[in-house]
Write a protein that binds this DNA or RNA. Structure first.
Length: 285
DNA sequence: AGTACCATCCGGCAGC
DNA sequence: TGCTGCCGGATGGTAC
């Protein structure tokens, strides 16, 4: 369930908190976690042993770290947290290895640990000189970053022209815009006053402008809060968030809208549950 | 081509 | 208390 803001918060913590520790040993406790080289834990382990994880960048919900061995580029490490994946940074301290520990990067009394309850999270080693998208296929059809200048109402109008599918389904489509999941999809539709079920191509330019604006705002504010707007999120120290942000509609079906008191509706769209206020989100509104 | 729909992966948890 | 079914990102397949 980490979406763009949570992944960005993790990226920043990895970038600034973990630093360049030297990986002396890699322990893969669940082989399935390694998506490339698929089924070859030894190759993955060999590729990362002796490396430092230097800069971390984010694309959509993917994390990419530059690997450096003895001062030379040694490929990259890609990570997708999926729903329950999280990193734990152990700087000298001891922590029992829980049963959901999937991968351990160890070195000099420090450890970067990947813990993933439902084990859907994935890691890829991108060999030097290889385009990341050749190994991490999900990167290929990723749409623009919400914070990119190219993402605006005009872009959405163009991209969604002729599409009859619900706007909520389009928002979750990573090829339309990268990084939006169910929570922020519902929240930005509420903030923009648009019901989730309306056909994508029936929205006016003004509505699409508003939708873009609200999406950018809600993502930015969540990053600012530390990405703690959803209950399972933990920082690198394993500490649960401060619930800085409360959802307007997500997960609130049946309870009164925080703004107008009308009962929040729930509807399945594209196989995913959507939550919305029938009063604050009206067609044409 | 665009889209809908399904199963898959997995464990926590709500509801009976 | 113990079972069943729901839930969810992304992918890959089928079907229209």
């Amino acid at each position: 369930m980490p979406e763009l803001p949570e992944v960005e918060v993790v990226r920043r913590a990895l970038q600034h908190g973990v630093g360049r520790f030297l990986i002396r040993h890699v322990e893969i406790r669940l082989a399935r976690t390694v998506a490339f080289p698929m089924g070859d834990c030894a190759a993955f382990t060999a590729a990362l042993t002796g490396c430092q994880l230097t800069s971390w960048r984010r694309r959509g919900k993917y994390l990419l770290s530059q690997l450096v061995r003895q001062g030379r580029p040694a490929g990259r490490l890609g990570v997708h947290l999926r729903m329950t994946g999280r990193f734990r940074w152990l700087n000298g301290e001891d922590a029992p290895v829980c049963p959901h520990t999937r991968v351990r990067f160890l070195g000099d009394g420090k450890e970067l640990r990947f813990v993933d309850t439902r084990s859907f999270g994935r890691m890829w080693w991108v060999p030097p000189g290889t385009a990341a998208s050749r190994v991490i296929t999900g990167l290929q059809k990723l749409g623009p970053e919400p914070f990119a200048a190219a993402f605006d109402g005009a872009y959405l109008e163009r991209r969604l022209r002729g599409s009859r599918r619900p706007i909520k389904t389009a928002l979750l489509d990573q090829s339309v815009v990268a990084g939006v999941g169910n929570i922020y999809g519902d929240e930005c539709l509420f903030l923009a006053g648009i019901p989730p079920h309306v056909a994508s191509d029936s929205l006016s330019r003004g509505q699409l402008d508003r939708l873009c604006g609200q999406l950018v705002q809600v993502l930015a504010s969540s990053i600012q809060q530390g990405g703690t707007s959803f209950r399972d999120f933990r920082d690198l120290q394993g500490v649960n968030g401060n619930y800085g942000q409360t959802a307007w509609v997500y997960g609130r079906s049946g309870v009164p809208c925080r703004r107008c008191g009308a009962p929040i509706q729930r509807q399945v769209l594209g196989g995913r549950s959507s939550h919305w206020c029938p009063h604050c989100q009206r067609e044409g509104g």
